[in-house]
Computed example of a mutant assay.
Amino acid sequence: MFSHQDEQEWLQQEREIHATVGDGGFGPVDRLGSWTEKSPFALCQYFLLRLGQTTWLGRKLVPEGRTDPASVLTPRMLMGEFESLRFTRQQVEFYFTPRDAQTHQDVLARAAKDAEADLDFPFPRLDRDWNEALVPAHVWDGTAELADNLDPDEEHFRAAAAIALREVVQPGDTLYDPACSTGRFVSSLGTAFPECRVLASDASPKMVELARRRIPDAFVADGLTRPVPDGSVQVLVLRFLNAEVLSAEAAVEGFRSLVRLIAPGGHALVFGHTPVLPAVRHLAGETGLEVRSSVAAVPGRPDEVFQFYLLHRPAVAA
């Protein structure tokens, strides 16, 4: 587990990197360069974007006013075309070729429109001993303050979900969030699709208490235990298979288990405040799901993107 001192040291490093990168990028344009990361705590901020035949390397930045990386990726975070990396216990050396700012903008805008594009965060959150770092369970027990902090950072997720599901949900469909937190997200789906049934649960009784302000029937349950029948859900919301919330192994097993809830012809949304841990495209194929898309753009800002998987279970098995 990471300590308060670890976190403060990391945040200071992030402030310095944010100031250093500025608008000049991570190195000279069109020249092979490298970037050294010595903090295991920061490795989960690195991402790979596969677009066409090219893989791009990027790193989340933490601007003033934030104490953690946002889920939205901007052109300034794109480092360049990925070449390779070298990994030791002391550091990770990334090799890449930066391109000009306009190219980086175009890449992110294209990724949001390309169903085959994929965003991958290869590293989980690590502590100074290179072990997976998870937020203690009691943090998720829920307070009004925590709810106020979580909800604003989901605005782009709520907008993307309404757009992605517009053509796929039908009256009477069940929309289920097994880790509903404050209930804000899944209740927004109920508002967008009032003829659908909204189902919500959470392992935290305090969070369920908050959620019941929006969803009176919200109930307490460990989502990983599949508290509703298999094949009974038309839209499954998975927004907790993420770094800091679960270990990588638990997230993979959780995915395999939970997608059994999806009815034939149904869909799943996979996203979160922190990076999605499972290799979703691989697991989707393993579990009989199709990946309809994996990258979404912030409405009105086409070159600002985030992980947002829309998965589909065919009505008739192939």
Rank of each mutant, 00 (worst) to 15 (best):
E93D: 09
A144Q: 06
L32G: 08
A112C: 09
V72K: 01
G288Q: 15
V235Y: 01
L61S: 02
A250L: 14
G223N: 04
F87N: 08
G254N: 01
R226W: 02
A112D: 03
A200T: 04
R59N: 09
G27F: 04
S3C: 08
L241H: 05
G265K: 05
V252A: 11
L146G: 12
A42M: 03
P299R: 07
G288L: 14
V21K: 02
G300F: 10
V280R: 03
D114W: 07
L210M: 13
P40T: 04
F240S: 11
F2N: 08
S39C: 06
R260C: 05
V259R: 02
T55V: 13
E83N: 08
L236Y: 09
V21C: 04
D217A: 12
S39I: 03
A42W: 00
C44S: 15
E290K: 15
F87T: 05
M77Q: 15
L238V: 01
P98E: 10
Q12W: 10
L119D: 00
R125I: 11
D222A: 10
G285W: 07
T287L: 14
L311E: 01
C44N: 14
F96T: 09
T36R: 04
P178E: 09
Q45V: 01
G183V: 00
P40Y: 02
R158I: 13
G288Y: 10
V62P: 04
G183Q: 01
F255M: 08
F123T: 02
V276H: 04
V198M: 10
D202F: 03
Q91A: 13
E14V: 00
R158P: 03
V29A: 06
V228P: 05
D151E: 13
L126F: 15
G223L: 03
H138P: 09
R89W: 07
V92D: 07
L11E: 04
Q307A: 14
Q53N: 10
Q102D: 15
P205F: 09
A137R: 15
L119S: 02
D141A: 10
D148R: 06
L150T: 12
V245C: 14
H138W: 14
Q170I: 05
D68E: 09
A159G: 00
S201I: 06
S84C: 04
R239A: 15
A317K: 15
F157V: 12
G24A: 04
V245G: 05
V245I: 15
L57H: 01
W56K: 07
V280E: 14
F94E: 00
I17C: 11
A211G: 02
D202N: 06
Q12T: 13
D151G: 07
D120E: 15
A250H: 13
F87V: 10
P264C: 11
P69G: 03
S201R: 01
A19K: 05
V316M: 10
A133H: 08
P299V: 12
P299S: 04
E16A: 07
